[in-house]
Each structure stands twice: as structure tokens, then as C-alpha cells.
Design a protein around this nucleic acid. Structure first.
Length: 638
DNA sequence: GCATTCTGCAA
DNA sequence: TATTGCAGAATGC
């Protein structure tokens, strides 16, 4: 559940923000002389903002159709280019008159020394996008110095959007002028533009660079005011390049294996479907909660366990309970598992393979989560199944990029509890980690008052649930639900936990107090999340704010640590000129695609980078596995 | 076609 | 009435 997400009074802001033009001059570069002059200027600059116009939103498929540049307040220049495949533009009558398209190859050849000169500072809005587009033209963008999207995110990570439009309204009190879509029609882009369009459109492209450059001047001061300089310039900005390279690397997928798996699942699904129809006495859409409710609760008259906003719940928890009284719910559960895996992963992943590279290129989003974590989309490679046997089969489709390569996976062991030990300074928790104890068994020993070797599986399991719950700011009721015990029992459990870890309690209470006092909480590296609901009159909303005040510094510090590790590991891989590539990050796990020759070297860099780049009051441990796919990994140590 | 709801996958 | 995400299918406008 998500109670709090910053509202974006979008329409409101759009109505009140002024729309008058910025005091700016925009220039269309439409002959060779002007272009040469522009290149001459760019070469001698200390810094500039730029923006690319492309044919696709996916940078891995995008072709360049124009670029704008701004290097002083109130000015921008736009260079229209023809993508490589439509060089017959002259025949189409696109040249001559006031506008002319330049050949993309010639433009980029002239600009390459500028883009690759790290002494010229580059400013952008979502500049990871520019990095990837240019990389696909053989240009390595160097000197990335500022990203307005990332800056806006650090200033307030709870915002839903960090697009240029919204940042411009918030910090410049300026509403962006008409979008290209509004101007020339939806679905049209620069490829389909004619000469007249370009004469109109260049101003709007220039506005993007102009606004980006103006925003940088403001946002850099805001970043400093909030003491976010180190986090921004030493972590988030260097991370942009790391993420761009990971996205470009992509992951290889075993298409044939997935195709076989799909056929196998179709058969199983057919069987499950028939069984369900038989048990239900009729055919219906099993995927529809509405139709399923009719069958389960009206036709079969099974008991109602819980309700949703609009009807009766048929989720997993409910079906498990109903399984005791009837065979149908169990059959539905089996169907659900297969249908979910097939549609979300098995059948969708092949369609996301890039035809040029043969790999899947996820987006690692740097400005989405409220806590500082990354997110992954199109496809989300951070939720590939692992818990069930059927689900794990999907991991086998994730393979190295070459036949002689292997995957190395490294994951942090109990990173969030180690952070809790560090931040709280709790003696018991710290000594547990220093001794290398099994933390859940150790906790069980303390809470149940028995020696660690007397801890049963059940006791350990309960302690594990409590350890997780602590990180989420859980209530006695929450724990009682999770452990399926009485609320009083759960309360006793939590009380004895805090009795054994007294400084953890003080620390967590301190976080809530801090949120009330400052209006925000911070992570290890000073990342902020505001807690506007911490004094709400509404108990539910206030308690939710209290839980986020507890969870954010822990989850966010873990995000800080792995980000620093990623930068260090990438630097070392590059310095050693290695062919091994970082390909995935899953919150507490990194995956590298390595050649066998480099295995030991990559192992050392990975292990040392994850464990030693940041020092806590307790050791940080990374567990390393190697294998020929993401399923069949085996423990690896040198 | 787009937004909402329910559901379920991960750390 | 346990934190953070992304996405597919159904549904309704």
C-alpha cells in the first residue's frame, strides 16, 4: 500500500504559472558557415547544456534528428540533422530556403572532439539518454557535470515527476511553451517534418536547452543549501555513466529455451484450465477477479475472507484459506502461478530483445524511488522470480553474452540489518555481526532466552520475520498477521526484541522524533526524504509517515552503499581494461558478465568493491556465486 | 485509447 | 494495520 505520494497539482500549477516567453533568443543553424561558427564556440566553452531530438523514446533504438545547445542565459542554437537512413532528403525537397538538414555523420564528426573532451562540462536533463544515443554513434560523452532531473530528484525524491516541464514551473516559475506534439501533431517527429515545420519547431527544441541551462544555475545552489553536494557530484553524477553503460551492455536471453518453456507452460495451463472448468461446472474467465468471485462466492457459496474496494478479494491469501474447504481454490492458485509467469516473463521477454544487439536493455531509473533505490523498467529485471521452483526456471534464460563467458552474481548479506547495527550503535547487534553470527538465529536466541544451539527452525523463522518487520516499522498487529499469532503475543515478541536490542528502539524512536523536528529524515550519505504527514491528525496517515521515517534511512543507506560500490567497481574494471561488464543491479545484488580468463580478477574487484568501499561499525559481507546462467549459480571463492 | 483496479513478482 | 518498486489482464469510460 502506498498512502503518501506527493500530489502534483498539475493543472493548478499550469494555470498559475506564467506562460510568457523567456527573454531568450533562439537560433536555427541552417548553413555551413553558421554550423562552423557554432562548433568553434563550443570548442572553447567551459560548459554548456544540450538536448537531443530523436526518432524514438528508447535511446537504444533512437536516431538523431536534431540537437540544441545553450551556453549562456537567454540563448540557444538548434542544429537539424537527417538520420542516416533518409539521406535522400534533397530529393524530397527538404533543403533550400531558410532551413536545411545537416548530415548526421558530418555533424557528429565535427562535434565528437567537443563531446569527448572531459574538460568541457556537459549539462543535461536526463543526460543518460544523451550518453546512450551518442554511444550508438560511436561517441563517448565525457565531462557530464550536471543533470537537472537528478538534481530535482535529490532535492525532493517523493515527487512523482522530474520532467523538464515540472521542474521549470517549480524553480523558474516558467511554463514550457507548446510541445512539439501540439505544434505539428502527435506521432510526428523530426523525420516526418518538412521545412516549414523545422522553422517553427527549432524554437521549442532550443527552449529545452535554454531552460536546462537556466535551471542548473538555480539547482546547484539548492543542492548546496541542503548539503547534497557530495551525494550529487560524487555519487549520483558518476552513477549516470555507470547506468548508461549497463543499459548499453544489456543482458543476453536464451530465446529458444524460453520458447520451449512457453510450450511446456501452455500444456500445463490447458490442463489446469480444464480442471477448473470441471470443478466450477462451467467455463469462465479465470483471470477476471469479478467472474471468479461470482463462481467462488455466489455459485459455490464459499466463505468471504476479505473485501477489496469494489468487491470480494480473491487474492492468494484468500485462496489459500479457501483451499481447506474446496478443491477449486487450489486449482486456481496453480493456474495463477503459471499464467503470471507465462504472460509477465516467458512470453514478454523475447519481444524486448533489441534486434540490433540481440540483448534485452532495461532502463535503470535513477529518479523514481522515494528512498534512493534504483528502479528497473521495460523490462523490470529487478523482479525476476526466484522463490518457487516454477518461477526459478525463468532465471535459466538469463545467460552470458558469449559462450566462453560466465555470470558472476554478488549479493550483500543482511545489508539492511548491518546498517541498522551501524546507525543505532546497538552493542548486541554490533557484536552479533562482528562475531559472524547467523543473525536470525542469534536474535531468536536472545528473544526466546535460549542458547543459539538450542534455537529451533520455528524460532529462527519467527525471529527472521521480526528482523524484517523492524526495518519496515511494523506494528504488533502487522507482526500478528505475518506470524499468524495473537496480537498480544506479537506485542510481547516485539517488546522482548527491544529489550534485547535497546539501542535499536532508541534509534528508531529518534528517527520519528527527527522527522517531527526537521520535517525530513536522512541516509548515511545525507540523502533526504521529507515526511510532511508526520504530524497529521489522521492516525493512519501519521503512522504511515512514521513507518517511512523508520524505513527510509535504512533502505536508503543500503542504496547509497551499493551505488558507491558500483562506481568503484566500474572504475576498476575500466582501469584494468577488462572486457567484463556490469549488467544488472537488484538492490542488494550486482551481476557481471565475465570472460573465464578474467574470472578471478573480476571476483576480487567485485568483492572488494562491495565490501570495502564504505566502512561501517560492522563488517559488510558480499556473497559471490558464478554460473552459466542466472539460475545455476554456485558458490565461488578464490 | 487511457486510467483504474486487482493481482503478484522482486529486494 | 510491514517498506520500496513494475507490469499484465480485466474493466469501464
Amino acid at each position: 500500500m502506498e498512502l503518501y505520494k506527493e500530489l502534483e497539482f498539475k493543472s493548478f500549477l499550469k494555470d498559475v504559472a506564467p506562460k510568457e516567453k523567456l527573454e531568450s533568443t533562439y537560433e536555427l543553424i541552417d548553413d555551413d558557415k553558421k554550423f562552423k561558427h557554432l562548433v568553434g564556440i563550443l570548442k572553447d566553452l567551459k560548459e554548456f547544456a544540450f538536448d537531443t531530438e530523436t526518432t524514438s523514446e528508447d535511446p537504444m533504438l533512437a536516431e538523431l534528428v536534431g540537437m540544441s545547445f545553450s551556453w549562456k542565459i537567454g540563448h540557444a542554437s538548434y542544429v537539424p540533422v537527417n538520420p542516416a537512413h533518409s539521406m535522400d532528403s534533397e530529393k524530397e525537397g527538404r533543403t533550400g530556403g531558410a532551413s536545411r538538414y545537416f548530415d548526421v555523420k558530418e555533424v557528429l564528426e565535427a562535434l565528437k572532439p567537443v563531446f569527448e573532451n572531459s574538460r568541457i562540462r556537459k549539462i543535461g536533463q536526463n543526460i543518460k539518454y544523451e550518453y546512450i544515443v551518442l554511444a550508438n554513434y560511436g561517441i563517448t560523452l565525457k565531462g557530464i557535470a550536471f543533470d537537472t532531473m537528478v538534481a530535482s530528484y535529490l532535492l525532493n525524491p517523493s515527487k512523482l515527476n522530474h520532467n523538464l516541464e515540472d521542474i521549470s514551473i517549480e524553480y523558474l516559475n516558467h511554463r514550457m511553451t507548446t510541445s512539439i506534439e501540439e505544434l505539428i501533431g502527435k506521432g510526428k517527429n523530426a523525420i516526418t517534418m518538412d521545412k516549414v515545420d523545422v522553422d517553427k519547431v527549432y524554437r521549442y527544441c532550443c527552449e529545452d536547452s535554454d531552460v536546462t541551462f537556466r535551471l542548473k544555475e538555480i539547482l546547484e545552489k539548492e543542492i548546496s543549501k541542503k548539503d547534497l553536494d557530495r551525494l550529487f557530484y560524487d555519487v549520483e553524477i558518476p552513477l549516470i555513466t555507470v547506468l548508461a553503460v549497463m543499459e548499453i551492455n544489456g543482458v543476453a536471453i536464451d530465446k529458444e529455451y524460453l520458447s520451449d518453456l512457453s510450450k511446456e507452460m501452455t500444456k500445463k495451463l490447458d490442463k489446469a484450465t480444464k480442471k477448473i472448468y470441471e470443478l466450477a461446472g462451467e467455463e469462465f474467465n479465470i483471470n477476471s477477479p469479478k467472474q471468479l468471485s461470482r463462481i467462488l462466492f455466489e455459485k459455490m457459496k464459499l466463505p468471504v475472507v476479505k473485501r477489496t474496494k469494489t468487491g470480494i478479494s480473491t487474492d492468494e491469501e484468500v485462496l489459500v484459506k479457501l483451499s481447506a474447504g474446496h478443491k477449486l481454490p487450489e486449482a486456481i492458485l496453480e493456474f495463477r502461478e503459471l499464467a503470471k509467469l507465462k504472460s509477465t516473463y516467458v512470453d514478454s521477454l523475447p519481444g524486448l530483445i533489441n534486434p540490433k544487439t540481440g540483448r534485452v536493455h532495461t532502463s535503470f531509473n535513477q529518479t523514481v524511488t522515494a528512498t534512493g533505490r534504483l528502479s528497473s523498467s521495460e523490462p523490470n529485471l529487478q523482479n525476476i522470480p526466484v522463490k518457487t521452483e516454477e518461477g526459478r526456471k525463468i532465471r535459466k534464460a538469463f545467460i552470458p553474452s558469449a559462450k566462453d563467458n560466465l555470470l558472476i552474481s554478488a549479493d550483500y548479506s543482511q545489508i539492511e540489518l548491518r546498517i541498522l547495527a551501524h546507525l543505532s550503535g546497538d552493542k548486541n547487534l554490533i557484536s552479533a555481526f562482528k562475531e559472524g553470527a547467523d543473525i536470525h538465529a542469534f536474535t531468536a536466541g536472545l528473544v526466546f532466552g535460549v542458547d543459539e544451539d538450542k534455537v529451533t527452525k520455528e524460532m529462527r523463522g519467527m525471529a527472521k520475520t521480526v528482523n524484517f518487520g523492524i526495518i519496515y516499522g511494523m506494528s504488533p498487529y502487522g507482526l500478528s498477521q505475518s506470524l499468524k499469532i495473537e496480537v498480544d503475543k506479537a506485542k510481547d515478541f516485539i517488546d522482548s526484541y527491544f529489550e534485547r536490542y535497546p539501542d535499536v528502539r532508541l534509534f528508531l524512536e529518534g528517527l520519528v522524533a527527527e522527522a517531527r523536528e526537521n520535517g525530513y529524515v536522512t541516509t548515511l550519505l545525507g540523502r533526504r526524504r521529507y515526511t510532511p504527514d508526520i504530524n497529521s491528525q489522521d492516525t493512519r496517515i501519521r503512522q504511515f509517515a512514521e513507518r517511512t521515517a523508520i524505513n527510509t534511512p535504512i533502505q536508503g543507506s543500503a542504496a547509497d552503499i551499493i551505488k558507491v560500490a558500483m562506481i568503484a567497481i566500474n572504475e576498476r574494471l575500466a582501469k584494468e581494461d577488462m572486457a567484463s561488464k556490469m549488467t544488472l543491479q537488484v538492490h542488494d545484488e550486482l551481476v557481471l558478465d565475465v570472460s573465464r580468463k578474467e574470472l578471478n580478477k573480476a571476483y576480487r574487484i567485485l568483492k572488494d568493491g562491495m565490501e570495502n568501499v564504505i566502512k561501517l561499525k560492522v563488517p559488510i559481507e558480499a556473497h559471490i556465486e558464478v554460473g552459466k546462467n542466472w539460475l545455476e549459480l554456485e558458490e565461488y571463492e578464490i
